[in-house]
Every structure is written in structure tokens, then in C-alpha cells.
Design a protein around this nucleic acid. Structure first.
Length: 600
DNA sequence: GCCGTTTTCGGCCCGACTGTTTTCAGTCG
């Protein structure tokens, strides 16, 4: 989990950012990428690691900003951000205002462009790249492959035959996986199965997932598992021999790394004595930035915090039984893993203003946003109802596509009556769960809804979503959504930014205006839990909560298994600091319907 | 390069593992 100095560990797919690209998209992500590129180039240049880290921390800070960058630059407030000093502020300003950065171009000119890509290979860092370039003129992945095959690398001091073999293997893995981060929704089931496997091995006292998976980041690079046991060896063996393991990448006295067959997923396991479990779990949960803040707070109190526990200056060990005890030691509220991003949670926890009642999956009474065979779903309404009941849900909103969504079997107005009759039959036949009559109505190009008001008024749940014409510009798209929000029949704005991970960018829209209008009009905003959507994302959830926007967590189910997507919606809501009271579908069915109708 | 109610200079998280060495450098998390 923790990002070190190696680009792979940050899991960012490296796309060289050229000045002309920046001009068109000087957003937070582009600025952060430039700062990361500078950090990499400085390492190649043999610069101080601290200087390098300053750029990396700056990149993290910018990427994680809850607010927009433009106003900070315009008002000269960049330096008010922790980790941004005069030098970074000046460079960020230059980048945002001119679309270029002279300093980056100077650095880039010193090296062939392929060197940055070389550093993405496993076990290849700046020192090795610099040596390979200086001694063998290796300037790209292809060059390195050739040099290894020709046995030239083994002749360098510090390299040998094993290094060559490992590099060739690393190149193969890199080319297959392209270093892309994986969707949390794809990784979590694999991770949980492995965790169960580890828990079942001899002598395990406690075990948990760690890293970005535990923090429920929307995409993850690898899986971390932390376990406690008196004897680590059998636990490490259990992972090495677990089903689905393609290769053991490394194994020592306390850790073991493997690569899974599925998706080239890397899994790291640490096993420690139980007395060190809590601090190790915290360390390997991260994020790096959050953890470093805690270490520094510990330092102020004369405590040295590491994965091996907490020590006083005199060397005595402070017992830490669980993570809550660690935070208590630092006079802080407990910070749930989803919030550990150094986005203000450290300050909030010290001042005791962290929300104590973040929404949980158990709080959710009903699942919002489900399709069935009536439109493009794979299961019948009855199957969906039974599956919802089996998960302990009290209701499910049936929200098929509307007529404009021809590709998805959208319902004509005349189909609705027949569907309502079926819903009434199922509600009578299946006790314990209630199907609510709803629609996911298309928001047309103008912002009008795809059914007349007279039809929408008869429904219990009206979600409005955009499914076509994603190519409109920011003004047009913002107007389109504002118009839809002004329609008194719209109750929930569905997947508001339209993104699909990792392939489709969100359409351009001024979300601040949308959230402001949603708050004014009392329209609820969807937190869509489909792993490829997670829309709105957690940064917008946090803005929405601050503005008093009402939210729903949804599963966007097209088959019964998708009902489990609710967990990802809840995770996204928690990452946006949403409390139970911010989420409408924590209410019982009748109150939920009434709340949706009670627009302001 | 950033930061400061110990500091405007001198710190900055730090241990495990590997492959190369024969005591350590590099990488990773």
C-alpha cells in the first residue's frame, strides 16, 4: 500500500504530460502528474530524497484536494496548503496559468523519455535506471530487454544473472498488466477469499485486509493482508500455497508476496506477533500521508511509531491492543480506514469533530436503483425481490430504463401499468421485502425528462440519468442537468457525472452548481455503487454533505448479485464523510418515499 | 523542498527482503 519512491507503488499509469496536453486539461490530476514526473526526474538526477519527497507530497496534496485548484491559484492561497511552499506554489501557478512548466521541460531534456517508463518496472528504481543509462545507454524498456538477453547487464557492478532473469520477467508482467490499477469491485472478492484462507491457517490470532483495499479506494494496485500468529512460517506457507497463486515473488521470516493468476494481482502478507498486530495493521493500511502525520504527532509526544509498535524515547514499549488505542494515545478520535487520506481527518480527529455516525451498510434499509428483465436486467422482478430479502433489505426500488433508452429495452408508458400489476402481485406474494414502483428516466438533451409529468407523478421513485449525448460541452451539460433538477418530478439525480472506470471520463459539468441546485431543490443525489461508476465520487460526496444535499446509496443492479454493490456505494459515502442522516435510504420504506416526495 | 510553542537550520518514517556482496545497496511498502 504505502507509496514509496517507486512510481509503480503509486499505481499511476504513466502518461507523459506534454505542455500542449496540459493546456487543454489543467486540472488537479494533470498538475499532480507533473509534480510526480518532476519527482521521478529529480531522482534520476541524483537529487536529495527529501526534495523528491516534497514533490511527491505536493502531488498527493493537489490530487486529493476537495476543492477546485483555479481559485486557489487566482487568490494566491496555494501556500496555505500543507506541503506546498513557495517553490511548489510558483510552479503550480505557472502550470495552471500558462499550461506549461519551464522547470519540467529543462529536467526532461536531460534524459531520454523512455527512462521514466523504465522506473515502472518492478525492482527497478532510479539508481538502477541511472546506472543502466550511464553504463549501457539503456534508455527504454526495449533497450533493457535487449541488454538482458545479450548478457550485458550482468557485467555491471551490483547486477548478476538473477537480476537479468528477474528484469525479463518483470518486463513481461509489466507488458501484460500495463501497471494499471484494478477496480476495487474486482479485487475485493479475491482479497476476501485469500483473507479467509489465511485466517484458517494454523495459529492465526487476528487477520485483516490492509492497504487501499481496506480504505476502499475506488481503484487499487495490490492487496495487503496483515495477520498475527506466534509462528509466522505456516501462515506464510498458506498464502504461498493458496489456490489461484501463479508465482511466489518473495518469502522471508515475516512476509510473503505472491502474484495471482487472475489479473496479475499482487498480494502481500505480513505476519507478526499479536502484540504488534494493531500497529502493523495501521501501518499497512495507510495511507502513507495519514500514517506519516500520526508518526509526527507521536514524535511530538516522545513516541516512536512504527509497524513494530510504539516506543517511548527511553526505548520502553507502549502496549497498543488495537487501532483505537493508537489514536487514543495521540489524543485523537478513532479514524475509520476509509477516511485515512490526510484530507483534513487528522485535524478533525484531534479537535473531536470527526463524524461519529458515518453511514454503515447495516444502516441501509433499502436498495435503490434496480433493473429487471423488464428492461436490461438479467433477473426477473421476483428473483430480485427474493435476493434483496435474502440480504436483509426491506425494500428495492424498481427503476427500469425509460422509452428513450431503446438500446436498454426502455419501457413505454403503456408498459408501466402492466409492470405495476406484477409488482403488486409480488409484493403480496413475497413478505418481508417491498418493491417500490419507480423509473430511471432519461434526461434528454434539453434537460427534459423522457416521460410526461402526469406519468412521473404516479411513480414512487423517480431517478433521472443521462445515458446519451455525453459529448456536450461544459456549459451545455451543466444547463441540461440544472434544467432536469428544476423539474419537480425529479427526485434523484442518477450517476451524475457519467464516468466509467477506467475507460470513460466524466462528462464536463460544473458539479458545484449542480450540487448547489440539488440542495436548493431538495433533489437527492445518487452515490452509485457499481464498481466501474462510483458516481458521485467521494470528493463530491463530501461537498454534497457540506451543502446539505440529500443522498441515496445505490446498487445500479442489473442482476441479483449486483445488489451487493450497495457496499461500494456505502464505502464511497463514508469516504465522503457521509453520516447515516445524510442518506435517505437508511429510512424505512414509507418514510423514504415520503422524503423523496417532500421536495423543497 | 517544506517546516517550526524545542528549531529560520537541520531535520525529514523506517524495517524487510533480495541479490549482490563478504558488509551492503537498492527497492519496496
Amino acid at each position: 500500500m504505502q507509496a514509496g519512491l517507486h512510481p509503480c507503488s503509486q499505481g499511476i499509469t504513466f502518461a507523459p504530460v506534454t505542455p500542449d496536453v496540459i493546456t487543454s486539461t489543467v486540472d488537479k490530476a494533470a498538475v499532480a502528474q507533473v509534480l510526480r514526473d518532476i519527482a521521478l526526474l529529480l531522482q534520476l538526477d541524483g537529487e536529495s530524497g527529501y526534495r523528491v519527497r516534497a514533490y511527491e507530497m505536493g502531488a498527493d496534496r493537489i490530487a486529493g484536494l476537495p476543492q477546485e485548484l483555479g481559485p486557489l491559484v487566482a487568490e494566491g492561497r496555494l501556500e496555505s496548503l500543507p506541503g506546498i511552499g513557495p517553490a511548489l506554489a510558483e510552479k503550480i501557478s505557472e502550470l495552471v496559468t500558462t499550461g506549461r512548466l519551464g522547470y519540467l521541460e529543462e529536467l526532461k531534456a536531460k534524459f531520454p523519455p523512455g527512462l521514466l517508463e523504465l522506473m515502472k518496472l518492478p525492482d527497478i528504481g532510479p539508481k538502477k535506471v541511472a546506472t543502466l543509462w550511464r553504463e549501457l545507454q539503456v534508455g527504454s524498456v526495449d533497450d533493457l530487454e535487449r541488454a538482458c538477453r545479450e548478457g550485458r547487464v550482468r557485467q555491471l557492478r551490483g547486477f548478476g544473472e538473477k537480476s537479468e532473469a528477474k528484469m525479463l520477467e518483470g518486463i513481461a508482467v509489466y507488458r501484460r498488466a500495463r501497471g494499471e490499477r484494478k477496480l476495487l469491485g474486482d479485487v475485493l472478492p479475491v482479497a476476501e477469499a485469500l483473507l479467509e484462507h489465511v485466517k484458517a491457517s494454523p495459529g492465526v490470532v487476528r487477520a485483516s485486509l490492509g492497504g487501499s483495499v481496506r480504505r476502499r479506494a475506488e481503484t487499487v494496485a495490490d492487496v495487503d493482508i496483515i495477520a498475527s500468529a506466534k509462528d509466522a512460517a505456516p501462515v506464510l506457507d498458506a498464502l504461498a500455497n493458496a489456490p489461484g497463486v501463479a508465482a511466489v515473488l518473495g518469502k522471508g521470516g515475516s512476509k510473503c508476496s505472491v502474484r495471482m493468476t487472475a489479473g496479475d494481482l499482487q498480494v502481500d502478507l505480513r505476519v507478526l506477533p499479536d502484540e504488534d498486530y494493531a500497529t502493523a495493521l495501521h501501518h499497512f493500511t495507510g495511507s502513507k500521508a495519514h500514517h506519516i502525520r500520526l508518526r509526527n504527532l507521536g514524535h511530538e509526544r516522545g513516541l516512536k511509531i512504527s509497524e513494530w509498535g510504539v516506543q517511548r524515547d527511553d526505548g520502553t514499549k507502549v502496549p497498543v491492543t488495537d487501532e483505537a488505542a493508537l489514536y487514543a494515545l495521540l489524543d485523537m478520535q478513532y479514524v475509520p480506514p476509509e477516511l485515512r487520506e490526510d484530507n483534513g481527518e487528522v485535524e478533525a480527529a484531534r479537535e473531536r469533530r470527526l463524524p461519529e455516525d458515518l453511514v454503515t451498510l447495516e444502516d441501509v434499509q433499502g436498495a435503490v436503483h434496480a433493473h429487471s428483465t423488464w428492461s436490461d436486467g438479467k433477473n426477473s422482478l421476483e428473483e430480485m425481490a427474493l435476493a434483496a430479502r435474502a440480504l436483509g433489505l426491506k425494500y428495492l426500488t424498481v427503476t427500469e430504463h425509460s422509452q428513450a433508452a431503446i438500446y436498454a429495452g426502455g419501457l413505454k408508458v403503456e408498459d408501466l401499468q402492466r409492470q405495476w400489476e406484477e409488482i403488486d402481485r409480488i409484493n403480496a406474494a413475497v413478505p418481508g421485502v417491498r418493491l417500490l414502483k419507480g423509473i430511471e428516466v432519461d434526461i434528454l438533451e434539453t434537460g427534459a425528462l423522457d416521460y410526461p409529468d402526469s406519468v412521473l407523478e404516479q411513480l414512487e421513485v423517480v431517478i433521472g440519468s443521462i445515458h446519451v449525448r455525453h459529448g456536450m460541452d461544459e456549459d451545455q451539460m451543466t444547463r441540461r442537468l440544472l434544467n432536469a433538477l428544476d423539474n419537480p418530478c425529479l427526485q434523484i439525480l442518477g450517476h451524475p457525472t457519467g464516468r466509467l472506470l477506467p475507460s470513460r471520463e466524466p462528462y464536463p459539468v460544473r458539479m458545484e452548481e449542480i450540487l448547489e441546485r440539488a440542495a436548493e431543490r431538495g433533489v437527492a443525489v445518487e452515490v452509485n455503487g457499481k464498481p466501474a461508476r462510483l458516481d458521485i465520487k467521494s470528493e463530491y460526496v463530501r461537498q454534497a454533505v457540506q451543502r446539505g444535499v440529500r443522498l441515496v446509496v445505490s446498487c445500479d443492479a442489473h442482476r441479483q448479485e449486483d445488489l451487493r454493490n450497495l457496499a461500494f456505494a456505502v464505502a464511497t459515502a463514508r469516504r465522503g464523510w457521509a453520516r447515516k442522516r445524510d442518506i435517505l435510504n437508511t429510512l424505512p420504506a414509507d418514510s423514504f418515499v415520503a422524503a423523496l416526495r417532500a421536495r423543497r
